[in-house]
Each structure stands twice: as C-alpha cells, then as structure tokens.
Design a protein around this nucleic acid. Structure first.
Lengths: 113, 113
DNA sequence: TTGACATATTCCTATATGCGTATATATTGG
DNA sequence: CCAATATATACGCATATAGGAATATGTCAA
C-alpha cells in the first residue's frame, strides 16, 4: 500500500508546504491563479494542481471571472485539524499547572453534564 | 519528485490516521508498544514503524523499562500545527461573521456614547 | 475567425510510502 | 547458556506522489 491520497482529507492535503502557502495567501482574500503564481513563485501548472487537491478536499472553491478563475479559501474545512490538535493545546501551555488542569477538567465535566 | 517525507515535520507525520490514533492513545499516558498493538489492533511491526516516524519528528519519546520500551507523547511538537490552523478558526465560528462584527462594534460604540 | 491570454490536464520519472512477512536485536528468568 | 518475551529492522511490492514540459481547453478582443 502506498501513502494515503493527498485528496483523502484536509490532513493529507495540508501536509504539503506549498499548499499551506497557497492557503495562507488566500486567507487575505480571493485571488485568480496567476496572482498565486506570481506571489508564490511557483509554476502555473503546479499551482493549478495544488489547487485541484485543495478543491477536492473542500479547502478552496472557485468561480469563473471571464477567463480567470477566482479561488477562495473555505477555511471551515480546516476544522477537523483544529479540533483534533486543540486537544493537545495544554501540552505546551505551561500555565496549566497540575491544579489548573484539575479545575479545568471539573469545569468541563460540569459543562457536559 | 515524490511527496515530502513523513518524517519531514509534524504535518506530514500526522497526516496518517494510524499515527493520529497512536497519539490519541498516548494522550492518556505513556504505554509500551504492545499496549498500542492490542489497543489499536495493528501488527507490532506497523506500530513500531509508525512510532519511529513519530519519534523522528519529536512527537513521541521512549525510554526503556526492562525489555519493554515505554512511549510517551510529546504534545508540544503539535504546536506548529495548532498555531497554523488557529489562524483560521474564525472561519467556522460564525459568530465572528463580518456582519456580526460590524453589529458588535456598533453596539459597543453606542454603549460608549 | 484569429490570436492572445488564463487555466487545466496529460505524460513522464524518481521517490517514499504503508503493509505483510520474516528476521534481527535486546532483555529477562531459569 | 537457553528459551521466551518485547521491540526494531529488512525486504518486497503496489501505489500515489510533486515537479517539469508540453499541450489541451476556454474565453476575450478586434
């Protein structure tokens, strides 16, 4: 078996640094392909191919504007990643002392009840 | 060129679902390899190989305990992922929609007036 | 229609993968 | 030392990749 497809989910799509770079640029607003090409210094086919992957996992959407295609970030597709990794946030937030952790958990339990 | 190495960074290491599963189990506390094997229903070599990848990106550490090796989660290696994805959090928190933001600001201004 | 522009797709190749199976490398108990 | 246990590594395989180059598709302008 080979590695999972990049188009399997956001985790795989986003593992590629160039695709994260594209996402970061699109975070400032929608852009045509050529803008990304210039801004990122990658070749046009590469950008188009990366955009295809991002489209297939729902991370970007596109609409036509004349002969151009405007790409827009669909940030909510990043949510599964955020939700998963957030669980581990306290691992590096040392302000969560042992006591704080207990208190936080107690509050969480209350919230769930 | 092929895909980036899974050991390149946490993004790539974590793209594999089985490795996330290992991380999720280790979140409850350190465990020897065999525990992971039983708990996750994967073969022992597979677990060892996934652990190797996780070790190489600093996501887990290991120490010997007799003939066993106890693996521990190093959650702070997930921080780059968290930091990156957190930037996009408001994309799905609809309470931060553009309109809501404007309305909230107007109300704040009224209150101050 | 023709040509220029914008984007997508195809073909090629080297490469790293994840899994299975088999085997190597500790470490312990007797 | 030997056998048993625990883990790591090696080998073979099918597969999907990222990049480059070339080309196809689509759209506008005159």
């Amino acid at each position: 078996m080979a590695r999972a497809a990049t188009t399997l989910d956001a985790f795989n799509a986003v593992a590629e640094p160039r695709r994260r770079a594209i996402i970061d640029v699109l975070a400032d607003g929608e852009r045509p392909v050529n803008d990304l090409v210039e801004r990122l210094g990658m070749t046009q086919p590469q950008v188009s191919k990366h955009l295809r992957v991002l489209r297939e996992v729902g991370l970007v959407s596109a609409h036509a504007d004349g002969r151009r295609r405007i790409y827009r970030l669909e940030g909510r597709a990043l949510r599964p990643i955020h939700d998963w990794v957030k669980e581990y946030e306290r691992a590096w937030e040392e302000r969560f002392s042992a006591l704080d952790e207990v208190l936080a958990e107690m509050q969480e339990d209350e919230g769930e009840a």
